[in-house]
Amino acid sequence: MSLSEQVRDGIAREMAKYPKKRGALLPALHLAQAELGHISVETAKELAEVFEIRPIDVMEVVSFYNMFYDRPQGRHHVYVCTNLPCSLRGARTLMRGIEARLGIEAGETTADGRITLGHEECLGACAYAPMLRVGGTYHEDLDLEKAMQILDGLE
């Protein structure tokens, strides 16, 4: 799959905001990934052309940042914060419960491709622990039942 015109236009608009166009690489990766789900080597090659850099320059950025993926993911990313403030309030117990209910371990994707589950470092919701993030949405003050209600509602 290649970059759509919309994504290319979006990247051009981002580039105009920075004194050097490479400044727009992270925004461009966000845009491309929102449309394609992950950044494949093919996508990296296309972006490299747009930015006039090497494909490896794109891929080393992709691999450095946790929020960029170099392979296909589930339709929903579910991340449970397991850093200290959340762990003190039961985040790892919650994670075990979710793993058992979904039948997968953190880092895996459900067989129907619905959910990719992961640990995540502090998300800035320390007083509202335990919590999880589905894509860009935070769900806070959880227990296993509340968490499963949210996950069951994902298409």
């Binding site: 905001k17 920075y18 400044g23 992270l26 925004p27 080393e60 946790n66 960029f68």
Partner: peptide, 28 residues
């Protein structure tokens, strides 16, 4: 002018020069 840029999940980008590298489209 104010430009908002979103990071992509790397604690080290809160270090000020890591942040600058990231702004330039590089590893932080």
């Amino acid at each position: 002018d104010v430009v908002l840029m979103r990071g992509a999940g790397a604690y080290i980008c809160g270090e000020e020069t890591g942040l600058l590298e990231s702004l330039e489209g590089k590893k932080g």
